[in-house]
C-alpha cells in the first residue's frame, strides 16, 4: 500500500530537469524495457518499469536510497525497444546523479570518484605503464592530481578517503 501523503509530486520534475531525464514523463508503463533487461534476468528485484513508476509516483526516498538503481549495466536494450523514447538508461543516470547528491552513492561509486580525482583515470599510472610507453616511443604520463580534483570538484583528501573506502 502506497500512501499519497508519502509521495513527493515534484520528484518526477526534479528527475526530468536533470540532463537525460526529460523522457521519463512519456512512460506508458508498457514494460518493453523490463522484457529486454539483462539485469532483470539476474536480479529478481530489478525492474526498470517499477523504478519509473516509483519515480513518477514521487517515491523520492525509496528510489534514491535503493541499491537497485546502481545495478544498470548501461547496455541500452531498454532504450532501444522503448516505444515512447523514455531513454531509461539516461533517465537512470539522472536518478543516480540525484541519489549521489542526496548522499546515497554506494561505496563503489565513491571509490571510483576517488580514483578519478586522484589519478585522472580509473587506474594509477605506475612505472610499469610508463616503461611500456617509453618502449613504444610515447611520452610518460604525469599525474596532476590537483587539476583532476579541481575539475571534478572533489577535494584531494576526500578523494584519498574514497580510495581507501
Amino acid at each position: 500500500m502506497i500512501s499519497l501523503n508519502d509521495c513527493d509530486p515534484g520528484f518526477k520534475f526534479e528527475v526530468a530537469a536533470e540532463p537525460g531525464g526529460a523522457g521519463i514523463k512519456a512512460c506508458f508503463a508498457c514494460a518493453a524495457c523490463s522484457a529486454r533487461c539483462p539485469v532483470a534476468g539476474h536480479r529478481e528485484e530489478y525492474d526498470p518499469r517499477r523504478i519509473i513508476r516509483l519515480t513518477l509516483l514521487g517515491r523520492r526516498e525509496e528510489v534514491l536510497s535503493s541499491p537497485l538503481i546502481w545495478l544498470c549495466s548501461a547496455c541500452y536494450s531498454c532504450q532501444e525497444v522503448c516505444p515512447q523514447q523514455v531513454r531509461f538508461t539516461e533517465v537512470l543516470t539522472a536518478i543516480k546523479n540525484l541519489a549521489a547528491k542526496a548522499g546515497y552513492a554506494p561505496p563503489s561509486a565513491k571509490q571510483i570518484a576517488g580514483l578519478l580525482a586522484g589519478h585522472g583515470r580509473l587506474l594509477a599510472v605506475t612505472e610499469f605503464e610508463n616503461e611500456k610507453r617509453a618502449e613504444l616511443g610515447l611520452p610518460a604520463v604525469e599525474e596532476r592530481g590537483a587539476d583532476y580534483a579541481a575539475i571534478l570538484g572533489i577535494a584531494p583528501e576526500a578523494a584519498e578517503a574514497g580510495e581507501e573506502a
Binding site: 518493453a32 523490463s34 522484457a35 533487461c37 532483470a40 534476468g41 529478481e44 525492474d47 518499469r49
Partner: peptide, 10 residues
C-alpha cells in the same frame, strides 16, 4: 515472445 511478467521479470 519475450516479455516482462507481472513481477517485472523477463
Amino acid at each position: 515472445v519475450c516479455f516482462a511478467g507481472p513481477d517485472g521479470q523477463p
